[in-house]
Simulated scan of single mutants.
Amino acid sequence: MRYRVTHRTTYAYDEDVASSFGLAHLRPRELPWQQVAARTVVIDPVPGDITEDIDCYGNVVSYFHVSQPHTQLTIDATSEVTVLPTVYDTEALAGAWESARPLAKPTASPRSWAATEFALESPKVRHIGAAREYGAASFAPGRPIGDAVTDLMHRIKADFHYDKTATTVTSTVADVFEKRAGVCQDFAHLALACLRSHGIAARYVSGYLATRPATGTPRLVGADASHAWVAAWLPGSDQWLAFDPTNDQWVSDRHVTVAWGRDYGDVPPVKGVIFTEAKNSTLRVSVDVAPLEDSAEPSPGPALS
């Protein structure tokens, strides 16, 4: 599938901001299953300094500094992307889940070292007892890694409710267990905690999901949102099985990959520091993932999920 992705982030302040430093993960990655024809990031006011770099996980990162006074900052990212369905190695999917633990099985693959970091705790994914206990139901001894991960995905969808009011960007895995609700970021962190607490290497993935309207209903421009999912390591092939616990499905050609890391804290769409006397501010985010032939200007949509 070919898409045009537009992502607009607008900050507004009640007093001048003298200086704004920002970091953005808004440019989709080039991957074997994803080709990027174009990608741009435009910032208003125009930054005095803007730099693009590659971080330690291979993500494209934009750094910028707006030094002129402003009461509004707008970041527009536009990309044209082709996404192909991923074909997984069937033998790797059939391997026992225990082999996907790079700390316990460092010789399972020549690249086990590269997966090790993703089996460790991270600031937003703590290996709490509740996560280990919940995950245990999916990880019977010797169960194929593909089956175990898929079962965990099904259970999260059945046992946790999508509710944008239940959590915030600072909520923990323990909070999600307590409320049994959250958004895609929370369900990704929950799945990661279940996997990693059993030693399985898995990474947090940020990106976009193209929505499909009901038959006979026009697609709403701007109705998409930033999305998050998980990829579990398959040591037999060094592939990563990407799955979407929010929607109970393996990642498909509807998912556009932007960045990955240990958790949300490594790859937020935009973060930064401002110098201002402002007491109040507002944030608006609009996202649109449109089939290329149907692409149009974005309209305001939901905030990051």
Rank of each mutant, 00 (worst) to 15 (best):
residue 226 S to N: 14
residue 201 A to Y: 04
residue 36 V to F: 09
residue 43 I to W: 06
residue 250 W to Q: 08
residue 278 A to L: 12
residue 142 G to L: 14
residue 57 Y to Q: 12
residue 134 Y to P: 04
residue 167 T to W: 09
residue 230 V to L: 05
residue 161 H to C: 14
residue 246 T to C: 08
residue 27 R to P: 03
residue 224 D to S: 07
residue 43 I to F: 12
residue 301 G to I: 01
residue 42 V to G: 10
residue 169 V to T: 11
residue 102 P to S: 12
residue 168 T to I: 09
residue 239 Q to C: 09
residue 44 D to Q: 12
residue 48 G to S: 04
residue 286 S to D: 03
residue 268 P to Q: 09
residue 42 V to P: 10
residue 65 H to L: 08
residue 263 D to G: 08
residue 156 I to M: 11
residue 175 D to C: 14
residue 111 R to Y: 15
residue 205 V to P: 02
residue 131 A to K: 07
residue 229 W to P: 10
residue 18 A to R: 12
residue 55 D to R: 11
residue 106 P to G: 12
residue 212 R to D: 05
residue 213 P to Q: 07
residue 221 V to Q: 12
residue 212 R to A: 08
residue 220 L to W: 04
residue 279 K to N: 08
residue 69 P to V: 04
residue 263 D to N: 10
residue 84 L to P: 15
residue 47 P to I: 00
residue 24 A to N: 00
residue 106 P to H: 07
residue 240 W to I: 00
residue 107 T to C: 13
residue 278 A to S: 15
residue 149 V to Q: 03
residue 37 A to Y: 07
residue 68 Q to Y: 09
residue 121 E to I: 05
residue 283 L to R: 12
residue 192 L to Q: 02
residue 12 A to Q: 13
residue 133 E to S: 13
residue 201 A to R: 02
residue 157 K to Y: 14
residue 138 S to F: 05
residue 74 T to V: 15
residue 263 D to C: 06
residue 7 H to R: 14
residue 232 A to T: 01
residue 56 C to M: 14
residue 22 G to I: 00
residue 68 Q to T: 15
residue 45 P to E: 00
residue 40 T to A: 14
residue 203 R to K: 10
residue 54 I to P: 09
residue 297 E to A: 11
residue 173 V to G: 06
residue 42 V to N: 09
residue 209 L to C: 05
residue 233 W to L: 03
residue 135 G to Q: 06
residue 248 D to W: 05
residue 2 R to E: 15
residue 301 G to M: 07
residue 173 V to D: 02
residue 140 A to Q: 13
residue 138 S to I: 01
residue 29 R to H: 11
residue 113 W to A: 14
residue 166 A to K: 13
residue 196 R to T: 01
residue 72 Q to V: 15
residue 139 F to K: 01
residue 65 H to E: 05
residue 204 Y to C: 00
residue 243 F to C: 01
residue 187 F to G: 06
residue 148 A to K: 07
residue 136 A to C: 10
residue 60 V to H: 14
residue 55 D to Q: 05
residue 115 A to Q: 12
residue 277 E to F: 02
residue 291 P to W: 06
residue 99 S to P: 02
residue 157 K to D: 08
residue 15 E to V: 04
residue 188 A to T: 08
